[in-house]
Computed example of a mutant assay.
Amino acid sequence: MIENGRVTTHAVFGQLPDGRDVQLLTIGSEPGPVVEVLTLGATVHRLFVRGGDGVRRNVVLGHPDVAERLASSDYIGGTIGRYANRIAGGHFELGGRTVEVRTHDGGNSLHGGPDGFDVRLWDVVSHAADELVLSLVSPDGDQGFPGVVSVKVRYRVTGNAVAVEMSATTDATTVVGLTNHAYWNLDGEGAGPIDDHLLAVDADEYTPVGATGIPLGEHKSVAGTPFDLRSPAPLRAGFDHNFVVRGEGLRRHASLSSPRTAMTVEMWSDQPGLQVYTGDMLDGPRYQRRAGVALEPQLFPDSPNHPEWPSPVLEPGETYRSTIEWRFSS
């Protein structure tokens, strides 16, 4: 429904195999961003913005139906949890004991396990013209993680920006690290590879990894390497790496631009790292290799096994918080 130029759509997108409805919820209004979110995975389904060429287009990848979304292993647009990125061997020490979580990625845990938050049906807490709040309760032992964890994600459109605000609480000591896994193509969803996009990342260091994506144990300078994205560069190299973002608090992590459509999105967040994934393993029926680039603000990969890095540990009485902002310009 559109009233006075404002979109407040609430529709049924499809059904899960058990018959539960998946809702499609829309926030925002022209001429600013308009965002479609699915209750399945608290997923950014489509995001429409106007480029410098005057054309409004959807700039994120998405699945056309529930079946394709459930069959995919690419996390497209989903809210990732309990722990974004990889945990080596699916185990870590917590409170003097070894925690074993489910593995499915080269013997490691990836993005919370094979049944992560991105394929759960979230509840709608509230839905207004420019703001949407979804919630999820993850039971004790979910994918092997301890504690009952209650999570909320708020999507909010303000001016030319979209904010994603995540929070979580627990009733027992656990680890939490959330992010959003939108894949960006500023030429438009389905417009081809992102090779000519220009990416800048505000990081002087990156995290080298082994063959299965697990950190080798230290950060290294980007200077003199393909990881030096301190100035905008075409996305010709393949990345699936963590960048150590300069500074603390809410700050710019990256800037992605398309010369073809004269559009830019700046990624802002309060997280210590940014995982840059150029979609080199996309091979589904809809999207092929490098159809989009994922820019995921998060804790460093395998942080539960690196006490020297920012801690993922969440205690009862504490609240985990993470903010992501997508700021558009042309």
Rank of each mutant, 00 (worst) to 15 (best):
residue 140 D to M: 07
residue 131 E to L: 09
residue 58 N to Q: 00
residue 27 I to D: 04
residue 210 G to Q: 01
residue 159 G to C: 00
residue 66 V to K: 13
residue 126 S to L: 09
residue 27 I to S: 03
residue 60 V to F: 11
residue 177 G to V: 00
residue 119 V to R: 15
residue 172 A to W: 03
residue 258 S to D: 03
residue 126 S to K: 04
residue 323 T to I: 07
residue 229 L to S: 03
residue 330 S to D: 08
residue 99 V to C: 06
residue 113 G to K: 05
residue 275 Q to Y: 04
residue 103 T to Q: 10
residue 1 M to K: 02
residue 95 G to Q: 01
residue 327 R to W: 14
residue 227 F to H: 12
residue 257 S to L: 00
residue 202 D to A: 10
residue 188 G to A: 12
residue 236 R to K: 15
residue 263 M to S: 12
residue 232 P to D: 10
residue 11 A to Q: 00
residue 29 S to E: 15
residue 116 G to S: 13
residue 171 D to I: 04
residue 117 F to P: 06
residue 182 A to Q: 11
residue 249 G to R: 07
residue 266 E to Q: 13
residue 225 T to A: 13
residue 166 M to S: 14
residue 76 I to Y: 10
residue 72 S to F: 02
residue 102 R to T: 11
residue 276 V to I: 15
residue 172 A to K: 10
residue 328 F to S: 03
residue 276 V to L: 15
residue 70 L to E: 09
residue 132 L to I: 09
residue 71 A to S: 09
residue 96 G to H: 00
residue 303 S to V: 06
residue 41 G to H: 09
residue 97 R to F: 02
residue 285 P to K: 15
residue 329 S to I: 05
residue 304 P to F: 10
residue 276 V to A: 15
residue 246 R to H: 13
residue 9 T to K: 03
residue 230 R to M: 00
residue 148 V to L: 09
residue 278 T to H: 09
residue 157 V to F: 02
residue 258 S to F: 02
residue 68 E to C: 00
residue 320 Y to T: 03
residue 107 G to F: 02
residue 162 V to F: 10
residue 25 L to W: 05
residue 257 S to P: 01
residue 213 G to T: 00
